[in-house]
Design a protein around this nucleic acid. Structure first.
Lengths: 321, 321
DNA sequence: TTGTAGGCGTTATCAC
DNA sequence: GTGATAACGCCTACAA
């Protein structure tokens, strides 16, 4: 099933088929010829061979999205947003899971850029300085690559402000153990907010992005006597809930918890989690748009910052004392 | 950067480069020549062009994984399992999200099979009868395609048995509104189990795979006076929790809840969810293995059933009365 | 042991 | 308006 078959069936040459189907025959191919070609293609169920086209044009019409861990529900929604935007631009998005493995991350990026993909979206990856092809970074600090990210500063400020306003003075930080710059920004901003109020974080713990590990890391924060904890992420907040339950500490009566991301499960936690809500679909869509611009050679803002907002639910309240 | 450049640099012909790099030069190419080629390739940072190779060989070394909704955490883990298995076989996995849209599902499958992918893994999709290329179905009832699925029958039996053993007689079913055969199997098995005990399901509700919608669908089950509810999926169980909280119904004292899948958040719910645990990574890996066999033309069992097991946690207990 | 040559299905540049 | 024809980069008989 090739364009040659279509040509034969339509009684024209192969190049005419190509011209018609690519739309480049505009005003060069007669209407009857065009109709005949289209009908033949339709009847035969012809689909252009992607590999041949890619080889000839040097363009794959595919972009890669590299995420650190597909298991995190956040990425699914980023992918969906990127995929929607990409599809309407005639691109496909290939998701690759780096499995939290830095080497594989780099290998994947190279492999992708070597041909299968025209560009890559790098989530939370502080990209190799010499990223070879078209790339856009997501959720990292400004660097060599154009960046699309959440307004973590505003989000953190809002969260800390909320805690302070409720009267908390002993605030802990359940931080992500993975050293991504977005998390460093949160830590920094948290400390700044606390300092401005004449405070210091009571305790800080670095936790893996997974409930049990986070719970283990969270336990010491409880011992340190925090009345509130800012968690870098909702997954970590989930771990905090686990640790609190284990230690029979009541949320929010004895402990206030704030998360980040507003993952779906945040609402079903008991009590529902107060968290900084982000729009992952928008993040994915914006990242694709930026990448499309990069690939087109258009100017791209070095940094695009998407708004977030604090959603106050049941996990925060006034401190007990 | 092509194999011709490498050949020139190594002072050999292009075909020699191809032979060496594909490993098919075994015992045909002299050691010094081979070394020279490898060194030249290394120095130049040569990467074979995937499109050219795919065009020439007719093989993309990529398989597609089509899922109904990337947003569900279950799929992330299936993808990871499939990707791991695929990678060690030299294949890449392209994830495509059908966005719960049947038409797009079909379009995606066709598009994938038209070239970019050598085969597809179809999750929960009752495939078009005339699936054109290599395909394996995941989590559906046996049909035209080889199937890899969870032992939902045993899982449902275990869940129902558990509820019955605890003394429940008024058992409801929070069913998935999406008409996939795996869910039909659960419904059927639940009824069978109940009948065997001389009971009928007290009430059944069809719910969307998302917390709020599920909660809305779950509310009537509470009104119907169920003392226990079997949920087709942990997401739905989450909705059940929401509805129970809304109606001030205590779990497990006034209502026992059983889920299915054992998603990560099941443990952080309060109380932790009793659920039928599956191994999504194994599912993904087994599906890829089956697809690899199909692509290789080897015989493949029509149906492969993976074990599940009931994990009893805090959401189930004896009925109040 | 190595090189030559043909072709995979497209697109695009020419003649006609 | 339409049709030859030449790449794109790679693999693989087959020839030397």
């Amino acid at each position: 099933m090739t364009s040659v078959d279509v040509a034969r069936r339509a009684g024209v040459s192969q190049s005419t088929v190509s011209l018609v189907l690519s739309g480049k025959g505009r005003g060069r191919i007669s209407a009857p010829t065009e109709a005949a070609v289209r009908r033949a293609a339709e009847e035969l169920g012809y689909r252009p061979n992607v590999a041949a086209r890619a080889l000839r044009t040097g363009v794959a019409r595919t972009v890669g999205l590299v995420v650190p861990d597909v298991t995190n529900p956040f990425f699914g929604r980023v992918l969906r947003g990127a995929q929607r935007a990409a599809r309407s631009a005639g691109y496909a998005v290939a998701l690759v899971d780096a499995g939290r493995d830095r080497d594989w991350e780099i290998a994947s990026i190279e492999a992708l850029l070597a041909g299968p993909a025209d560009g890559v979206l790098l989530f939370g990856i502080d990209a190799p300085a010499d990223t070879p092809g078209h790339a856009v970074a997501i959720e990292v600090a400004p660097g060599a690559l154009p960046v699309v990210r959440l307004d973590v500063e505003a989000g953190t400020d809002a969260a800390v402000g909320h805690l302070l306003e409720l009267g908390h003075r002993r605030i802990g930080h359940l931080a992500s153990a993975v050293g991504r710059s977005t998390f460093r920004a949160r830590a920094q901003r948290l400390e700044a907010g606390l300092h401005a109020a004449g405070l210091e974080p009571v305790a800080t713990a670095g936790a893996p992005m997974e409930f049990d590990g986070a719970a283990a890391a969270a336990a010491p924060l409880l011992k340190a006597g925090c009345t509130a904890v800012f968690c870098d992420d909702d997954m970590l907040a989930g771990g905090m809930y686990l640790a609190a339950r284990e230690a029979s500490v009541a949320i929010p009566d004895e402990l206030s918890v704030v998360g980040f991301d507003d993952l779906d499960f945040a609402r079903v936690l008991n009590p529902p989690l107060t968290t900084v809500a982000a729009d992952p679909e928008a993040l994915g869509a914006a990242a694709f748009a930026a990448l499309a611009a990069v690939m087109a050679g258009s100017p791209v803002e070095a940094e695009q910052v998407l708004p977030v907002r604090l959603v106050v639910r049941g996990s925060t309240g006034r401190p007990a004392a």
